[in-house]
Design a protein around this nucleic acid. Structure first.
Lengths: 183, 183
DNA sequence: GTTTTATTCATACTTTTGGGTGATTTCAGC
DNA sequence: GCTGAAATCACCCAAAAGTATGAATAAAAC
């Protein structure tokens, strides 16, 4: 069994649509709200213009601060531009879902072969003894596990071997696994 | 083990980069259509401002060359600010990878677990004896199969049990199957 | 040449497994 | 009520498995 991983790219249309819906809802339809930002921009610019004129009147007197004045204008309008851009662009998240298939060998889930079990005619107790036997327990250990005497386990073993037509526990375990009556 | 599917989230950097490239390619056309109104507004206002300055310039002769210069700076740096902000803010994308487990029951092909075999330190002969043991053969039958004496088989068994740290053949077989060193 | 490992074989002994016989109790089906 | 099956238990004995000790040979590595 190779452990190769397959990558398959998949974009979920549901999420795409839902994101689009959100965008639509946030688009204003009314005239006032539609031009809210440009109105704000216009008002801001007008006030800024007024401020500039006021600063100019004060700076005309002092010639040394010419560069400071220009620099201030540059910074102010850069920040204004950034602010405007940030207002206009909302960060969006786009989720891309990728499904990756991993092949896993199924060793943990055991499905009992009922048909084979019925055919062999093993009782519930006998099947239980067989399972413990397959786990590597000795007869004495099986007896302790099931709270019965060693003689009882031996009797179950004899019955199991008889029904499965085998001579020893290793054969019983091997057959049991092949028939799918023990995991 | 329940047969539930486990979801694990994982971000692949490779796919992230490739999708990022696609997004970059689509950016210019989207940008123009998206900010059509603000752009138009901005340009209009800039031109209006320039016109006002120009009219003022004509009325005040060349005494106000200074205002034209400042106005130009304001426009340039507003555009620069917008450009900067758009550069800084990009739509985010999140990649989500969902791992999907596919249970495979591979009973027909047996792949020897070489690593486990090396770790246990079983020799070729010992592995052969273990395989026959798992098939249900008695020590005497294994000896006949391999054309060796019963004592030889017993010696191999002792070595196998020692290396696997088990007490009896059923434990050795059980462990051998679980480790994948016998089919 | 020496050392280590794998393979093979033997002997003696202990422990575990497996076969045979018999018995008792409980429960379900007729 | 009777019968058969399942579960439980006991005792005896043989066979098989497992342990311990020792030995020999061949091949590969140092």
């Amino acid at each position: 069994m190779t452990a190769d991983k397959n990558l398959s790219i998949f974009v979920s249309p549901h999420i795409f649509i839902s994101l689009f819906s959100v965008a639509v809802e946030k688009m204003p339809t009314k005239f006032i709200t539609k031009y809210k930002i440009p109105l704000l921009y216009g008002i801001s610019l007008a006030m800024l213009l007024f401020l500039l004129q006021w600063i100019k009147l004060r700076l005309v007197i002092i010639d040394h601060y010419f560069e400071i004045y220009v620099g201030a204008i540059a910074i102010i309008f850069t920040v204004l531009g950034i602010w405007l851009a940030l207002k206009l662009t909302k960060p969006k998240e786009r989720i891309v879902i990728i499904e990756k298939e991993i092949h896993v060998q199924n060793q943990e889930t055991f499905t009992l072969n009922e048909k084979a079990l019925v055919q062999l005619g093993l009782s519930v107790r006998e099947l239980e003894v067989l399972r413990l036997m397959a786990e590597g327990l000795s007869n004495q250990e099986i007896a302790a596990r099931l709270f019965v005497s060693l003689n009882t386990v031996k009797t179950h073993n004899s019955r199991i071997f008889e029904k499965m037509d085998v001579k020893r526990r290793t054969q019983a375990v091997d057959m049991g696994k092949k028939l799918g009556i023990i995991p």
